[in-house]
């Protein structure tokens, strides 16, 4: 195959990866890894490098809108980034000692978990009483809804912080945004309304990914020939996805895509066990 053909096919593939990631809420990087490894036979380390870049691009690109609307809780994001960046650097460190097949299996497991998370029942209730730490750290805030400004408060800051550190490790190890884990920490543990938790998670993904990306860049995981079609394709797909999201009911789409993701995840786990990476 020539470089030209490879780039064009990868660009189209990355576009659909971005679209799928945006519509399911899984993020831009998640689909890039199976696309590169299973379809193109690329070494998983190059795939991780490309996926990290895709995560940064889609996170930074889409975070813009939510930050402007005032939904994103910037203080909460910054506070939790302490946990995710430490985790991400740690994850990038242990990645060197982790066999690629183990990484592939772990990726499949996280993918299954993420698919399940997108179909879960979301937390819409806002707490009226927060924990002591939530006042101390000024984490309680408000966000605009159709019915006006809603005040919300947080609890279980310690528990949320710990899950965030784990999300960071996974992000650093696998090169994904691990948005599902971040939402789990904020939505389920700290009881934040899901609109705030998903946008704040998305806002944090860029910084978390950048913390490990600088390590991977120096290790040579980021190949220019793979990176440019992936970045441009995923970004284009994510933009289309965000436009479609406002126009259609995504419930049915989500179920279809999640089924597809279960297949992809199983394929990754199977190939990992068979030592194909």
């Amino acid at each position: 195959m020539t470089i030209f053909l490879f780039s064009i096919i990868l660009l189209i593939g990355a576009y659909f990866a971005g679209l799928l990631g945006s519509l399911t809420g899984l993020g831009g990087g998640v689909i890039v890894i199976p696309l590169l490894t299973l379809v193109f036979g690329v070494d998983i380390r190059y795939a991780i490098g490309a996926a990290l870049l895709a995560s940064i691009a889609t996170s930074s690109g889409s975070a813009t809108a939510y930050v402007k609307e005032g939904i994103t809780n910037i203080r909460l994001g910054m506070f939790l980034e302490i946990a995710t960046t430490i985790g991400a650097v740690g994850g990038a460190l242990i990645a060197v000692y982790t066999p690629t097949n183990t990484i592939a299996i772990l990726f499949g497991v996280i993918l299954l978990f993420s698919a399940a998370m997108t179909l879960r029942k979301k937390n819409e209730a806002a707490l009226t009483e927060g924990s002591k730490l939530s006042y101390l750290l000024k984490l309680n805030s408000s966000y605009p809804t159709k019915e006006g400004i809603v005040q919300y408060k947080l609890k279980n800051i310690g528990g949320g912080f710990s899950i965030m550190a784990f999300a960071g490790v996974i992000s650093g190890l696998l090169g994904i945004g691990s948005g599902a884990l971040k939402v789990l920490a904020m939505d389920t543990v700290m009881r934040i309304p899901f609109k705030v938790s998903t946008t704040t998670s998305n806002f944090m993904i860029g910084v978390t990914a950048a913390a490990s990306a600088v390590v991977y860049l120096q290790r040579g995981y980021m190949d220019p020939g793979i990176a440019f079609p992936v970045i441009l394709g995923v970004l284009g797909g994510a933009i289309t996805g965000s436009k479609l999201l406002t126009r259609m009911n995504t419930r049915v789409l989500k179920i279809i895509f999640c089924t597809a993701i279960v297949f992809i995840a199983t394929e990754m786990i199977y190939n990992g066990i068979q030592h194909h990476f």
Binding site: L53, I56, S60, G206, V207, A210, V214, L217, A227, I231
Partner: peptide
């Protein structure tokens, strides 16, 4: 291309 990657990684920082 790598310069573009560098700018992308630098953005969240």
């Amino acid at each position: 291309i790598q310069l573009g990657i560098l700018i992308l990684v630098a953005t969240p920082i």
